[in-house]
């Protein structure tokens, strides 16, 4: 039993945003993420069976497809693209992860460290560009980044926080 185009459009419109958020969160590149998501939808379209829970199927398929793509990359490329080396947990939720990291950045890092992280990660600047922008030396940029990463590493190493209504509650 196959889907009609109208039915499929409804499924696509409903499930695409979540699938894209997950793919972008894992691959860090929007075009590649869109390619993966579209491939999953094409597979669903071509399948001869109907799936009860489309959202769950698509999220699962997108996650696996992204991890397969990451596995094909060598370590240098993974580091360049700041991709995860370890597969994320089964119940990985990009929105929750995003909130968790954002909260940690705000609560653990100094203002200067936050500024440096923002320039490097959000705006994709090099140390040189960030040092010009923030009017500090490259050594200071490096020191701030190293300190920030160590703080976050210690934070994520500890038992995972759970979130209740946007508040972090520790076990």
């Amino acid at each position: 039993m196959r889907y009609s185009t109208t039915e499929f459009e409804t499924i696509y419109v409903k499930c695409f945003p979540a699938a894209m958020r997950l793919a972008v969160s894992l691959l860090h590149e929007e075009d590649e993420a869109r390619d993966v998501v579209q491939e999953v939808f094409v597979k669903l379209w071509e399948s001869d069976f109907r799936i009860e829970n489309h959202a769950a199927f698509i999220i699962r398929a997108v996650r696996n497809a992204c991890l397969n793509r990451i596995n094909l990359l060598d370590n240098r490329e993974k580091i360049r693209r700041r991709l995860t080396l370890e597969p994320p947990p089964e119940d990985y939720d990009p929105d929750q992860r995003h909130e968790e990291v954002t909260q940690a950045i705000k609560s653990l890092l100094t203002l200067r460290e936050q500024q440096v992280v923002e320039q490097i990660y959000t705006h994709g600047m090099s140390y040189k560009e960030a040092s010009k922008k923030l009017e500090v030396s490259e050594a200071t940029i490096n020191k701030n980044i190293v300190t920030a990463l160590k703080k976050l590493r210690n934070h994520f190493k500890s038992p995972s926080p759970i979130y209740v209504k946007n508040r972090v509650v520790r076990h």
């Binding site: 696509y12 419109v13 695409f16 945003p17 894209m20 958020r21 972008v24 969160s25 894992l26 860090h28 929007e30 580091i79 693209r81 700041r82 991709l83 995860t84 080396l85 370890e86 990009p94 992860r97 995003h98 968790e100 990291v101 954002t102 950045i105 992280v117 923002e118 990660y121 959000t122 990463l149 160590k150 976050l152 590493r153 994520f156 190493k157």
Partner: peptide, 22 residues
């Protein structure tokens, strides 16, 4: 490796998530 994972986590959180025009 753990620092790399922390860097990846920031990278994921910083990845731009636009509102998609469906």
């Amino acid at each position: 490796r753990e620092i790399l994972e922390a860097s990846a986590a920031i990278g994921s959180a910083s990845a731009v998530q636009p509102d998609y025009d469906m």
